[in-house]
């Protein structure tokens, strides 16, 4: 089985899609927003690999073609963003200030927890860029002397948690404005959160996309400053 996975160029894509489709089917069947297809597909794929003793590298021999599409898909986020340009212009002040405040909040909360849990400097800077998109976060972590694979893990867990919790958290906090919802999701949970924002609505998706770019750039500068605090 492992050998076949290592030689195939499609099997990883197919099982990922099947498990995601199964998650969507479950969600439709039970009509519950608690059922998250992304989480289900990740968990089932992991179980599948462990059960059949397939190495991650063998799975990723074909799975990587799904990851490959991420770059053009992220570029494509410019299209819904452009379609919302009037709304963006009209609310530019709210957009920039809230993403700025959100990004600063993220780094400050990490600093507080780093102090509580007695993280050393390397552990602290490993988590510092965890709310932003993977590629930017990785470079920041590397530059500041963090442990890059853990940064990647923290970024992915952040995104998945944001994707799953977004609707519940926003509802509990009584945040109803579509612009505010999109900014909140994108600033806290980057591209994986944005995938959820796109499902919620066009305005939410566009604002979330905008937050990936803006929060990413603010954090590049901010993380260099915040790194000096511990």
């Amino acid at each position: 089985m492992n050998e076949f996975f290592a030689s195939s160029t499609t099997i990883g894509v197919v099982i990922s899609l099947i498990f995601y489709y199964f998650g969507m089917w479950l969600k439709a069947k039970f009509k519950s927003s608690l059922i998250n297809p992304l989480l289900i597909s990740i968990a089932l794929t992991m179980v599948f690999l462990l059960l059949f003793r397939i190495d991650y590298a063998s799975y990723n021999n074909s799975g990587k073609y799904l990851s490959y599409l991420l770059t053009p898909a992220t570029v494509s986020l410019a299209i819904p963003l452009y379609m919302e340009i009037e709304r963006m212009k009209k609310n530019i002040k709210a957009i920039l200030i809230s993403i700025f405040v959100g990004s600063i909040t993220s780094m400050t909360v990490i600093l507080i927890f780093a102090l509580i849990f007695h993280f050393d400097h390397a552990q602290y800077v490993t988590f510092l860029p965890k709310s932003i998109t993977t590629a930017i976060g990785m470079s920041i972590s590397e530059e500041l002397g963090g442990v890059v694979p853990i940064t990647v893990a923290a970024i992915i867990v952040t995104g998945i948690f944001g994707n799953i919790s977004a609707e519940g958290v926003l509802k509990a906090a009584n945040i109803t404005d579509p612009i505010a919802k999109g900014l909140a999701i994108g600033t806290s949970a980057h591209a994986i959160g944005t995938a959820k924002a796109m499902e919620i609505g066009e305005v939410e998706g566009a604002m979330s996309s905008l937050s990936i770019v803006t929060a990413g750039i603010i954090t590049v500068i901010g993380a260099n400053l915040w790194a000096m605090f511990l």
Partner: peptide, 24 residues
């Protein structure tokens, strides 16, 4: 790590959303 990631995520989501709603 999990506590940091989860709490930070919720706080940032709420703070960003509330700030945006307030200004709007």
């Amino acid at each position: 790590a999990l506590i940091t990631v989860i709490v930070c995520n919720v706080v940032v989501m709420v703070v960003t959303g509330k700030t945006a709603e307030f200004i709007i």
